[in-house]
Structures are given as structure tokens and as C-alpha cells.
């Protein structure tokens, strides 16, 4: 009897430790750092091609979020290497650029905002199979994107958000 009690207590504790509260899920879904990116290969000159995931309650919203994440990854975190492509550094190299230029990025990433200018090609027909996973509280959706990386960098440099390579010379 004592053994059964111990096993049940342990199981309850493990389950409790792994469970995400509704609040935690909401935070994760809304997190601006929650980008999952897998590089698909070397893109055409000036572009980056990778797969990116987005989370939302509805599939359509998750697709929109994935596109935002794709552009945000290029700006703030950089893109990892893979499939023959070398890693790409973040366009904004200063720490906390997102907070320093909060007003700029609020309008940049508003739904239907300027960020869409740099998302050239996606597979955003309703994804299926492993690219459309039902998770607790919504969907995790993966889309392949081509981002106009050089155009994005040039525009951010022109707007004074990113530092040019030849700045100061």
C-alpha cells in the first residue's frame, strides 16, 4: 500500500512539473523570442530560405505569426546554418534593439505592416501533416519562407535602426 502511495505521489509531482498552466501557454504564444527556425538551403543572392514556425489559437493566425517570426529572426537573432548554408548574423547587433526602437518595431510588425514587404515567398496554403500540429491551446504551424534579407538590412540601415558596415568611415 505504501509503495502504491509513493508511486502515485511521484507521478503526480512529475505531471505537475511538466504541465503548462494556461497563463504560461499564453506567455509562450505571445513571446517575441519564441522563433523556431530550420534552414532549408542557400537562397538566391540577397535572400534567405528557411522554415519557421508560429503558434496561435487558429491556423491562420499561426501563419501570420510565423511570417512575423521569420522577419524577426533575421533582425534580432540571426539564422542558424544548415543544409549547406552558413549561419547568418542578426541585422540588429546591439543588445535589446527591440526595446531601444520599440516604437519603430511596433508599427513595423503590426499585422499587415511593413514586415510583409520582405516575405517574398511562402508555402502559406493551409499547411498539413507535421507542419500543422494541434497543440494544447491552439496550433503550431510551420511554413517555408524566402526572406529578402539584403533589402531588409538596407531599409533598416537607411532608417537608422541597424548600423551600416561602413558607418563611421
Amino acid at each position: 500500500m505504501r509503495h502504491i502511495f509513493l508511486i502515485l505521489t511521484s507521478l503526480a509531482l512529475i505531471a505537475g512539473a511538466n504541465a503548462q498552466s494556461r497563463k504560461e501557454r499564453k506567455i509562450l504564444f505571445g513571446s517575441t523570442y519564441n522563433y523556431e527556425v530550420a534552414v532549408l538551403g542557400v537562397g538566391q543572392d540577397g535572400t534567405k530560405v528557411f522554415k519557421v514556425w508560429g503558434y496561435a489559437k487558429k491556423v491562420d493566425d499561426a501563419i501570420v505569426q510565423a511570417k512575423k517570426n521569420a522577419v524577426a529572426a533575421c533582425i534580432f537573432r540571426g539564422i542558424p546554418g544548415g543544409n549547406g548554408a552558413a549561419p547568418t548574423p542578426a541585422i540588429c547587433r546591439e543588445a535589446n534593439a527591440e526595446e531601444t526602437h520599440a516604437d519603430y518595431f511596433d508599427s513595423f510588425f503590426a499585422t499587415g505592416g511593413k514586415y510583409l514587404k520582405y516575405v517574398n515567398l511562402t508555402t502559406d496554403a493551409v499547411p498539413s501533416g507535421q507542419d500543422r500540429l494541434k497543440v494544447k491551446g491552439g496550433y503550431k504551424v510551420g511554413i517555408a519562407v524566402q526572406i529578402l534579407y539584403n533589402d531588409l538590412r538596407s531599409d533598416l540601415e537607411a532608417d537608422g535602426i541597424a548600423r551600416r558596415l561602413d558607418a563611421g568611415f
Binding site: 542557400v42 537562397g43 538566391q44 549547406g84 552558413a86 547568418t88 548574423p89 547587433r93 534579407y149 558596415l165
Partner: peptide, 11 residues
């Protein structure tokens, strides 16, 4: 094309 962004990042 693949390596130049990494190179320029370090530069």
C-alpha cells in the same frame, strides 16, 4: 553567397 554574411558580421 552563403558565407559572406557571416564574414561581414565578424568584420
Amino acid at each position: 553567397i552563403s558565407y559572406i554574411d557571416e564574414f561581414n558580421g565578424r568584420l
